[in-house]
């Protein structure tokens, strides 16, 4: 398949089941909501070492939030219910509770509930108070600028992590520009995040390493500077590769994001981009397979 002069390899991205939730963080201004969101989703590129993968889903207007203030929707993904619970407790406790003026709410109603405010309330040292309004229960924790309000529990769903595609091109600059185009369009979608810096990963990895104890190492088959000495997957004219990894609340959201991103990366191609491919492990590890040709059909 050729799309805007770019070869779309007949392969698939292999993704995995994860647990995910959405948090809504509000603040006095959009700026402070964004600061809270950036902080809470920082150092959350990969579950390999971060405990969770997280990102900003979208900004929310005051009309869209529970308390009528500007907010931001954040998505968090982890490998298990327990890992997600811990990541939420730590990240909200350290990054949202501490941020001036913020409040934190569940952005998902479905699924088994995870404790959040229920865990963080102890920071109130006995001065915390629960408040139930309608079917929602909140904790009010006294802090130095007023109260930190946090929903008692948050919903969670079985989600999909590790959707991906790789952009192969002639130069770093050209590939980066294509990846940025892709991320810009993908960020307009609901239910997905691209957890790596700026939505883009340069250090695609393979499972395992020659070094004991290292669970992942550089994907040498896609490293252009060693293509002459490894079993490379790169055509001779490719000198740069970037990967976009997608986590989504469901399979459809990840597939839609991949299709949107690939189309955007290829759009307006001036010959810099040569091929789009995807990462997989032979289809034996992850239950979700996103075939590029089917996504773009």
């Amino acid at each position: 398949m050729i799309l805007d002069g770019v070869e779309i390899e007949d392969t698939f991205a292999e993704a995995f089941g994860m647990r995910a939730t959405r948090l809504i963080v509000t603040a006095d201004t959009p700026r402070w909501a964004r600061i809270a969101g950036d902080t809470a989703t920082g150092f959350a590129t990969s579950v390999i070492a971060c405990g969770a993968e997280a990102g900003i889903e979208r900004d929310l207007s005051a009309e869209e939030t529970p308390d009528g203030r500007p907010g931001i929707a954040l998505l968090f993904f982890a490998v298990s219910r327990d890992a997600l619970t811990k990541a939420l407790r730590d990240r909200v406790g350290q990054c949202v509770l501490t941020c001036p003026g913020t409040a934190c709410y569940s952005g998902l109603d479905e699924g088994e509930r995870l404790p959040l405010g229920r865990s963080l309330r102890y920071f109130g040292d006995g001065y915390q108070a629960a408040k139930r309004l309608g079917d929602k229960r909140y904790w009010r924790i006294p802090v130095m600028d007023g109260e930190f309000v946090c929903e008692d529990t948050v919903g969670q769903v079985k989600a999909v992590g590790g959707g991906n595609f790789l952009i192969l091109g002639k130069t770093h600059r050209g590939v980066l520009a294509a990846a940025e185009r892709a991320v810009e369009q993908m960020r307009r979608l609901i239910g997905v995040i691209m957890p790596f810096p700026g939505g883009i990963a340069r250090s695609g990895s393979k499972i395992g390493s020659r070094y004991k104890g290292l669970v992942a190492s550089t994907n040498d088959a896609y490293c252009p500077t060693i293509k002459g000495i490894v079993k490379t997957a790169l055509p001779p004219s490719v000198d740069a590769v970037l990967e976009i990894v997608i986590d989504g609340l469901n399979e459809a959201a990840v597939g839609a994001a991949m299709a949107t991103g690939i189309r955007a990366a290829c759009a307006g191609n001036d010959g810099e981009i040569l091929r789009i491919t995807a990462g997989n492990y032979g289809g034996k590890l992850g239950p979700f397979h996103f075939r590029l040709h089917e996504l773009l059909a």
Binding site: D67, G68, R69, A103, K131, L133, Y138, R140, E147, V149
Partner: peptide, 16 residues
Amino acid sequence: VHDLIAQHLLARRLAL
């Protein structure tokens, strides 16, 4: 005197 978030939530509930 405070303008607490809990008051905002209550006001929203009353409006509903």
